[in-house]
């Protein structure tokens, strides 16, 4: 928790986190048909889709935490970028899970990627929930390792300064 407080004591990281959260949440809700823009803006949760919505919010929330923390870690502590890839990977996997072929991007996917797009779309549709859970697991693991890394590296930096 102290690592999260440390990172987000800088308002630039709060702003980055909010930008990531909103920038991912809005398109994902649109793709997954929780919000509609036509004929007018409306939000609607069909019965039985509550779990999918909760997973999207958790996933986007974690991405909003993990990505700025990794940027902080790399920029401020000059550490490796390996852990960053976990956050990006988790976000991308989770985002793709919502791109169901029958959602508002279906025709764009089929037109652009042809039969490969259709096959990928079928997979993403059939395994939407497990894919999102996997993305959340990757993001949670990245959050844990990033927090540990910040904690450890801050202590090392503090020791170096004291010496």
């Amino acid at each position: 928790m102290s690592e999260i407080k440390l990172v987000f004591s800088n308002y630039k990281y709060v702003a980055l986190s909010l930008a990531i959260f909103v920038g991912l949440l809005f398109p994902l809700l649109l793709i997954s048909e929780y919000i509609f823009l036509e004929p007018y803006f409306i939000a609607h949760v069909n019965s039985g889709t509550e779990l999918g919505l909760a997973l999207i919010v958790i996933m986007v929330g974690l991405a909003g935490l993990v990505l700025p923390m990794n940027i902080y870690r790399i920029k401020m502590l000059q550490t490796s970028k390996k852990k960053m890839s976990g956050g990006v990977l988790g976000s991308m996997i989770g985002s793709a899970a919502g791109a169901c072929g029958c959602g508002p991007v279906g025709f764009a996917v089929f037109s652009t990627f042809g039969s490969l797009g259709a096959t990928a779309s079928a997979f993403l549709t059939n395994y939407e929930i497990p894919i999102r859970i996997t993305a959340i697991a990757i993001l949670a693991l990245t959050l844990y390792t990033t927090s540990k890394s910040i904690q450890k590296e801050c202590q090392i930096n503090l020791k170096n300064q004291n010496e």
Partner: peptide
């Protein structure tokens, strides 16, 4: 190196949403 993947991920998702709207 590390900012690009984040930007690419956000732009990709936003582009998909834009495509969704423009195809209508």
């Amino acid at each position: 190196n590390f900012i690009f993947p984040v930007i690419i991920a956000i732009v990709a998702v936003s582009s998909i949403a834009f495509l969704a709207m423009s195809f209508t």
